[in-house]
Nucleic acid binder design. Structure first.
Lengths: 238, 238
DNA sequence: GAACTCTTGTAAACACCGTTCACTGAAACC
DNA sequence: GGTTTCAGTGAACGGTGTTTACAAGAGTTC
């Protein structure tokens, strides 16, 4: 059955426990609590033993970021799958809501993955999650009006590059997109939507709204409505 | 001349040096480098001496956040004052650009102040900066169209609260606002603008755009255009 | 001017941290 | 059975925040 040797199985199991312990520490007590010694203590081993699995504390944190991104991707895809209505607008709404809910439920993870300055810790991971979701959704949007609104000429170069990235992401799912579906105006609105989505969620998680919002969800919904109509999805009654 | 005693002057001077050293360490080597011992080393004293000025490492970081917010407020107000054209749209644009430039020039400070999870470290400070800028700008916007677009009923309660906060902020500058200038539709767009502004700047500083943006400034400008027209400022040629 | 208090700093110590290194003992291999 | 591979240990180094007891100067009072 198991092709791995006994030693390999034990090693894999220990590595799993290390990640699990690190994650638990992050969730319970924040980033600064994820120390090698604390992890080792949870496993009943000593800190230097962890160097048999990771090169440094930094490498372990990077792995933690990857795990978090993978988990978030799983959650988002699950929420997308649960949205069985054929309407693409509903699917986008479901994914955005799932993203907000995940971030609010996992503030420490969100802070670690999204708001580390510069060093692209987990950046690649997350970008791919976004692309894997956005690509197919746009591709399946038969109903969208295909108008190509004018976009500032200076943005063309970057938007065309993003267009290609999106096309590649969709191609991996075996779909090719016509230019009129993925026109520059729509691409631009996808980027703008990401800005607003990220902005709202980050402000809410970090508590940086300029006034006390008693119930941010309707505000999020309202933003989604405008986002969806901007991006060219037909309005759906909810 | 100086009413303070010699001792008080020395103490104030030392405190200034502590803040300055902490700030330098943050800028040069990031948050984790802001260590009591490192600060003390810069001043040529020992770490425990710092406890005569701050209760804990945490309290010192909080003070650092306040200093950063104050500096940013200073920079934004300076940029606002430098915009001498009478057009309010230009002023808003100037402040938004200044915010983006400040964040890009001070990524470590931005990360510390904006993206610390939950504990409202420096949150109050920043909120007041935003209010002190937004209030007077809206108040001085004679040209804005006074249409009150419909806003979802669930948002009314929160928006009215924010309306009052803005009104108070403006009142401190000796101006009282008519309801038609500060109507709920406009308030809503102010919040939405803050979401987009913060979203774009944070994504740019943290490098989390979903694709490589060669020159994000035109994208920022483009977003500002839409923001300003949404919020009811007359279009201005730039 | 002497005696006293208040303040600012020090040195030593504690417990924790990341990391390195020499070593052990058991598993895996030939 | 002998050898190699490897997960794990314990001790150590230099770093951290923080507490404690103590020194020495500044300011105040008699």
């Amino acid at each position: 059955m198991t092709e791995a040797t006994r030693r390999e199985r034990l090693r894999a199991e220990t590595e799993r426990e290390i990640r699990q312990a690190a994650r638990a520490l992050l969730v319970e007590s924040g980033r600064d609590a994820v120390t090698l010694r604390a992890i080792a203590r949870k496993l009943g081993i000593t800190a230097p033993a962890l160097y048999r699995y990771y090169d440094s504390h930094d490498a372990l944190l990077r792995q933690l970021c990857d795990d978090i991104c993978a988990d978030m991707a799983l959650a988002l895809h699950a929420n997308l799958a649960a949205e069985t209505s054929g309407q693409v607008g509903c699917k986008v709404r479901a994914v955005c809501h799932a993203f907000r809910r995940w971030a609010l439920a996992h503030p420490q993870e969100f802070a670690l993955v999204f708001a580390s300055p510069r060093d692209p810790i987990g950046a690649d991971q997350f970008g791919s999650v976004f692309l894997q979701l956005a690509g197919p959704l746009i591709a399946s949007n038969e109903d969208a009006n295909h108008v190509d609104e004018p976009v500032p000429a200076v943005l063309h170069e970057d938007l065309v590059r993003f267009q290609q990235v999106l096309r590649d992401a969709v191609a991996e799912h075996g779909v090719t997109l016509a230019d009129e579906v993925l026109n520059l105006g729509k691409i631009y609105h996808v980027v703008q939507s990401w800005v607003r989505l990220y902005g709202h969620v980050a402000l809410e998680v970090f508590g940086r709204f300029p006034f006390a919002v008693s119930n941010p969800e309707p505000m999020f919904d309202s933003m989604l409505d405008q986002m969806l109509s901007d991006i060219g999805f037909v309005e759906v009654e909810r």
